[in-house]
């Protein structure tokens, strides 16, 4: 395996780089979209059920089908990474709308009331009070979405977009198990690293929870 790595170092590095970009870009795009939609779903409880249902439905579309259909819908090249980024953004959105809505709903009523009574207006209250308190719930959803993205990206190997999933297809074609094992290890390490980073960021954003845990 070590010789395989040293022989293909530059390719492996390029694929890892792409894998990182293809799983993280959708995460940021999906989260950016999920915040306003999740806020709407929480603010207007009537639209909560339909919004969560519709976005949740997105997740049931098979990823391979979505990757193949994207060029038809967007008019992009079949090999363009944009297809993957947009398809995975939709999955992230599907996972995070509910998370954001539930996170905002987890803010205690008396806290939002106190904020209003102290003169916070809509957006200021959301950014300064509600979102910071919703961070633990939202972060839990982001962790799931990130790991899911890392594994879904590899499916894109079937349509030939370069990333660690290529190791599975080439290993499969050559009946050669080293690249497959390497691909699995690579994906797991990436997922673990991302998870650790998110956990770290969450801790930095929520010093109040850390202190609670150690009285």
């Amino acid at each position: 395996m070590l010789s395989y790595i040293s022989d293909n170092a530059s390719t492996l590095l390029r694929w890892t780089g792409w894998h990182v970009v293809l799983s993280l870009a959708p995460l940021f795009i999906g989260l950016a979209l999920a915040l306003p939609i999740g806020w709407l779903a929480n603010r207007y409880r009537l639209v909560y059920a339909p919004l969560v249902a519709v976005t949740g439905l997105l997740y049931t579309i098979p990823s391979l089908a979505l990757f193949v259909f994207m060029p038809l819908i967007l008019g992009t090249q079949i090999l363009s990474p944009v297809n993957i980024i947009i398809a995975l953004s939709l999955y992230t959105l599907a996972l995070l709308v509910r998370t954001v809505a539930d996170g905002l709903a987890s803010v205690p009523d008396d806290v939002t009331q106190a904020a209003t009574a102290m003169g916070y207006k809509g957006l200021g209250r959301l950014i300064r009070v509600e979102l910071p308190i919703a961070v633990p719930v939202i972060a839990a959803g982001v962790r799931v979405a990130t790991v899911s993205n890392v594994s879904l990206v590899s499916v894109a190997a079937i349509i030939g977009v370069p990333q660690l999933g290529q190791l599975f297809t080439s290993g499969f074609q050559l009946q050669y198990y080293t690249p497959i094992g390497l691909g699995i290890i690579g994906c797991v390490i990436l997922a673990l690293v991302f998870d650790a980073i998110i956990l770290g960021v969450t801790k930095v954003l929520t010093p109040w929870r850390r202190q609670e845990a150690t009285p």
């Binding site: 009331q113 106190a114 209003t116 102290m118 916070y120 308190i133 109040w208």
Partner: peptide, 29 residues
């Protein structure tokens, strides 16, 4: 909002901001 900033408000469970220190809670208004 301006009216409210001129009126102190205390509720049953205090409604403190859990993500801010005691000092930062008090300096809010």
């Amino acid at each position: 909002a301006e009216l409210r900033r001129g009126i102190g408000y205390v509720i049953q469970h205090a409604g403190l901001f859990p993500h801010r220190t005691i000092l930062d809670n008090v300096t809010t208004v």
